[in-house]
Every structure is written in C-alpha cells, then in structure tokens.
Amino acid sequence: MTAADPDRPFRSLAGPTPPVAPDPAFAAALRDRLRRELLLQQRPPVPAEPRRTPMPAISPYLVVRDARGAIAWYAEAFGARTVDGPYPDGDRVGHAELEIAGATLYLADPYPEYGLEAPGTAKPPVSLHLAVPDVDAVMGRAERAGATIERPATDEPYGRGGRLVDPYGHRWIVQSAPAAAEQAPEPGDAVYLTLNVPDGRRALDFYGAVLGWTAVPGRVPDGWQVEGRTPMVGIGGGATELGMVPMYAVADIEAAVAAVRAAGGEAGDVERQSYGLSASCRDDQGLPFWLGQLS
C-alpha cells in the first residue's frame, strides 16, 4: 500500500510558486546597482585590434540599419578595421569603432527611442570624404560589394575621385591626391616595394604596430596598398616565397627587359597595370625584382 511510501504525504508540498513583486524601493535600488555593475564589467573593453590613431576632434558617427552587416561591408569595401566593439545591445549593436585609412568612424544600429534613425530614401545631406591612393580600386570594390555609384571616378585638377552611396544609405566621396606631378621618379629609382608574405593582413598588423603603416585593400585578395610611403609599399598575401621585391623605374620597359636578358637575368612578359607597364624579372643570381615604366 501507499502507506509504505514515505514520500507520499510530502508530495502535496510541490507546486508552482507564484511570482511576487518585491518592495518597489528594493526593486529600483537593485536595478540601479545592476546597471552600475554592468557598466563596470564592460570597462575596460578589450579592443578587437589596437587603435593606431589618436581620437580625432571630429568623427562621423553613422546610424546604420544592420550595423553588423555594415561593419563587414566597410571592411570589405574600404578595408575598415574594427578597433573597438561592436558592443551588442540585445539584437542591436550599441556602438562600434572602425578605422578606415587611418581615420575613425563610429557606427551603431538605429535607436528610434533616442531619435537616432538610419538614412531614409532622401539624399544624405552629409558625405564622407575618403582619401585613398587608388580611387578605381576602392570604387570597384565598393560597387561589387553592392554600393550605388553616384558619379564614376574622373580625373579632376584636384585629383581623381568619384561618389558612391553605400548599401546603408551613406554617401562617400572617394578621392585621391592629384597625380604626383612634383617629381617623376628617375629611371633607376626604386619606386615600389612589395612585401610577399603568406598572410598580408598579419604583415599589415605587424608593420602597423612597428612602423605605424596604414593601408587600403589592393586589387588582389589579401593585397594591401600601404599609404603615404616613399617609395610606395604594397603587401601581397598568399605568397609561398617570403621576401621583399622592389620595382625599379625605367624609361623604356622593352629596352630594359632586353637589357636584363642580355646581362644574364630573366624577364617575364611586359604587363599593363593601372600605373603603367611592368615586368617581373630576376637578376643573374636569381634575386627577384620588377621593372616599371610609369605613365
């Protein structure tokens, strides 16, 4: 019989417990304490990557629908690095800091409750001016990634530039400095250094930390155009042969290729590049270099 079951009488003790609202003063005090604790816990945040530039006096703070998507998009199109955050806030991103070409960009998801809305269908009244060495590469990349080209790149007295609207409704003016008319390289000058490494992103991080280099994405996957260096520097990821390959300026590349071969070196085919003509060579001891006839 059930009398032998010692648990039996106690079974009636089980049952759901009704929720009870505590004293409102206690509830408010505890809520306040939790808010402070949460703030304490979030500081210091570990930056995703070290910040390379001090905080500028003015930084654009974008409201974007789908901030996570936008962070990925700006990385793909403009080579943006996430230097802080993103800080999740439920389903939204409450704050994130990107570095694009050495400049700082903040962004967050819309917060309609604070009056912070993403761009609508109207034309954005503020444009973001992005200075890059290679306007065509950046605009091409942005267009492939879904940007709307408002004005294709053209050469102007102040440099080559174009306009685009990104998928989040923000307009960018992509601009390069005027072609370096100051001093054209002399034939024989080293004009360009290419760092061939297995991981271009990693090399950029290393030289960014050591030398302060910043870069924008190049034309090839994991290729990076280092900004503002003399001679110009590029980083090529995915290389199996480690090394730095210089490009030497020549006045006549066909003649120079012939001279390489005559001197016992090797020269590949002359290739057309956006900056002129190039040929991949090795000297007679096997050391690689490029020849460049700059236009």
Partner: peptide
C-alpha cells in the same frame, strides 16, 4: 547609444530581463 563617443552603452540584456525575472526570483 549613439550619442557617446567613448565607453560603450550598458548592455540592457540583463536589465530588460530584470523586470520580468525579478518577481519570479523574489
């Protein structure tokens, strides 16, 4: 959010749960 340039906004995940969870826990 969006108006402050330095620290992140507090994550209201736990705080938004708080109102619903407090009477249950208490």
């Amino acid at each position: 959010p969006g108006t402050r340039a330095v620290g992140p906004p507090p994550d209201p995940g736990l705080l938004s749960l708080y109102d619903r969870a407090l009477p249950e826990v208490y």
